[in-house]
Design a protein around this nucleic acid. Structure first.
Lengths: 344, 344
DNA sequence: CTGAAAGCGCTTACAG
DNA sequence: CTGAAAGCGCTTACAG
C-alpha cells in the first residue's frame, strides 16, 4: 500500500542506529561536515546506502526554513517562447542547487492566482512570472517578471526589445517599397501587445506613413492563430487593403498566413508579411517567413540570474528593467527571394 | 531582506493568539471542522485574514506525511507532444487537489536520474514518467509510464497505438499506388522507435512489398529535424530511391521535408511523405502534411487518472497497459490534392 | 465545543 | 570529534 510504503522509508534516525552514532552525527556526516572523523563519516554513508536512505526534504526545508525551490509561472507551457524561456531558466537554477516548479496558468487570472498562492504556501524562494493580465497579488516572495512587465515591482523585469523589433520589421517592409502596411497584434493589455503596437505606430510615424485606423487589427488575448486569421480577413476585406502586414507574434502570423491563403492570395507576391517571433520551422512554411528571432533561452537564463542575484543580496534595491535583443531573420515572405542551392 | 521576510510570515500560532484560541482550534477552524462552533470559526478566519496568514505547506506535509504533489517528468518540455500531455495531466490532477511539479530532463539519463531522486526526496505522491532510455531506477513512488514503456513496471503504462498508426500511414501510401516506401524513424531504443519500425515492417510485409535494408534510416535519439534531414539525404542518394516516405515523428518529417526541398524535389509530385504525429500548423507547411493526430491531451488525462486510481486503491495490482487511438489527417503531402475554397 | 501534548524528520546551537 | 536537546509549523489522537 502506498501509505505503508511511505512510512516504511528509512529516516535519519534509522541510519544513525545502523551506524551506531547519534542523529546529529549522522546528519553531519551526510552533509560532509569536516567536524566528523573520516571513519565515522564513511560508516554513516555505508549505513545510509545499505538502508537505501533518501533524506526527507520536507523535514529539511521546515527546519532550515528554505525549500531551495523556485517557481516558474507562464500563461501557456505549449507556446514555444515560454518553453524555451523555462529551459534557459531551469538550466541556471539547477546548476545553483535550486529545484524548479513549473506551472501553466492557461491564461486565466484565477489559475494564476491559485498557482501563486500555492507556490507561496510551498515557501518557494522565488518566482519567475510571466503574468496574465494585471498583476495585483500580494506576493511575499521575490519575483522577477518577464515578458509581461509590472514596472517598479518585483526584483527585476525582463522583456524583449519590442519597439526595436518593430522598427526592424517595419524598416524591412519599407525597404521593399511598401507604404500601406497593416498590423495584426495582440491586445494592448500586455507589455508585448502594448509596446509592439506603439513601436509599429512610431516606426510608421517616423517615416510619415499613413496609418488608417482600420489597418490596425487586434486579436484575442491568447494571440491565437484563429484570432490572427480573423484579423487578416478583416484587413483583406478593406476597400484599400494594405500591401504588407506586420504580425506581432508567430502564432498570429500562422493564422494570418492561413487566412490569406484561403482568400486565394499568394505570399509574398500578392501580400508581404513579416512577424515578431520566429516560429519553429519558419523556413519550411509556404512561403518561408521573415521574422524576428528573440533568443528566448537567453531570456530565461537572464531572468533566473537576476532572481539568484536578489536571493543572494538580501538587500532591497531598485528593481532593474532589462531588455533582450532581437534579430531579423530574412527569408521570403517579405518579398526577398529565397536562396536555394541549385538542384543536383 | 529575504530571510527576514520569510521569518516574518505569520504562523498558525500567531493566528491562534490573535483569535484568542488554541492552535488546535485555529487549525480545525481553518480546515472547516464541524467540531468548531460557527462563531469561533469565523473569529479564527477573520484573524487569519487580518494577519495575511498563509499556511505553511511544508509543515503540513511533514505532519500529514503527504505532500499532495505529483511529478511529471519528460525528455523535452519544448516538444509539442509532451507539453500537451502535461496539460492534460495537470488538468485532472489539479482538479483532484494535487499540485504538479514539471521537469524536463533534456534527454539525458543523468538528469532524469537526478530529477527522480529529487522528486522522491520531496515525497511526491506519484510520478508520471516518459523515461529516456532504459529505466533502472529504484523508485519508491507509484509511477505511471507513458510514451516510453517499461513493461510490468509501475502502476500503469500508456502509449499511443504505434503499430496501428503505422498501418494507417502505410495503407494510405499504398492506396496512392506506392510500393517503394522508405522509412525515417527514431532509434529502436524507445517504445515508439521500436514499435513504429516494427509496425512499418509488418504493414509492408502483410502486403508482400519489398523493403530493401537501405530504405530504413534511423535518426538520432532526439528524433531531431537535423537527423530527419540526414536520413532523407541518405534515402535520396540511393540508386533506386523510394517514391514515398513514412516518417515516425513530426520533428523528423520537418527535417526530411527541408532536406527534400534543398535537394530540389517537390512534394508530393517528386516524392510523397506522411508522418506520425501531427505538427502544429501542419496545414501551413509546403505542402500541407498528411499526418497522424494522436490526441495527446487525452493521453495526459488518462495517465493522470490511472495514477490517481492507484493512489486511491492502495492495493498493488497488475500494471495495466493502455493504448490511445490515433487518427489519420489527410492533407496533401501524400499526393491527395488539397481542397481549397475558390478565390473570391 | 475546546485545549494540552506529542510528533512528523530533520538541523544546529550548545555542551562536553 | 560526538551527543542531547530544542525547535521548524503544522495536525491529530486524547482528554475534558
Amino acid at each position: 500500500m502506498a501509505a505503508d510504503r511511505q512510512s516504511a522509508l528509512p529516516t535519519l534516525a534509522d541510519v544513525a542506529v545502523e551506524a551506531r552514532v547519534s542523529a546529529s552525527t549522522a546528519s553531519r556526516a551526510l552533509q560532509g561536515s569536516p567536524r566528523i572523523s573520516a571513519v565515522t563519516t564513511s560508516r554513516v554513508r555505508v549505513a545510509a546506502r545499505r538502508l537505501g536512505y533518501q533524506p526527507n526534504r520536507i523535514a529539511r526545508s521546515l527546519r532550515t526554513r528554505s525549500a531551495d525551490l523556485v517557481g516558474i509561472v507562464v500563461p501557456d507551457i505549449g507556446i514555444g517562447f515560454y518553453s524555451r524561456v523555462i529551459k534557459g531558466a531551469q538550466d541556471v537554477l539547477e546548476k545553483t542547487g535550486y529545484h524548479v516548479l513549473v506551472a501553466s496558468t492557461e491564461r486565466t487570472e484565477a489559475r494564476e492566482h491559485a498557482t501563486l498562492r500555492t507556490l507561496s504556501e510551498h515557501r518557494v524562494n522565488g518566482i519567475l512570472l510571466a503574468t496574465t493580465g494585471r498583476f495585483d497579488f500580494d506576493l511575499r516572495v521575490p519575483v522577477v517578471f518577464f515578458d509581461n512587465l509590472v514596472p517598479h515591482a518585483g526584483v527585476a523585469n525582463v522583456a524583449r526589445a519590442n519597439k526595436e523589433g518593430m522598427e526592424l520589421l517595419v524598416a524591412h517592409l519599407v525597404s521593399h517599397g511598401h507604404s500601406k502596411i497593416g498590423y495584426i497584434g495582440g491586445p494592448a493589455t500586455s507589455t508585448s501587445g502594448r509596446e509592439r503596437l506603439q513601436g509599429f505606430a512610431e516606426s510608421l510615424g517616423a517615416r510619415r506613413l499613413e496609418t488608417p485606423e482600420e489597418y490596425v487589427q487586434l486579436a484575442d488575448a491568447a494571440w491565437s492563430p484563429a484570432g490572427g486569421g480573423s484579423a487578416m480577413t478583416q484587413l483583406l476585406g478593406l476597400r484599400a487593403p494594405p500591401t504588407a502586414i506586420v504580425t506581432s507574434s508567430d502564432t498570429l502570423a500562422l493564422g494570418a498566413m492561413r487566412a490569406a491563403r484561403q482568400a486565394g492570395l499568394r505570399l509574398p507576391n500578392d501580400l508581404a508579411l513579416v512577424s515578431f517571433d520566429d516560429p519553429a520551422f519558419g523556413e519550411l512554411l509556404d512561403p518561408p517567413i521573415t521574422a524576428l528571432a528573440c533568443n528566448d533561452w537567453h531570456m530565461g537564463e537572464l531572468a533566473a540570474s537576476l532572481l539568484l542575484h536578489a536571493l543572494d543580496n538580501h538587500a532591497v534595491r531598485q528593481p532593474t528593467e532589462v531588455r533582450t535583443p532581437v534579430e531579423l531573420i530574412v527569408r521570403s515572405s517579405c518579398g526577398c527571394s529565397e536562396v536555394l542551392p541549385a538542384p543536383p
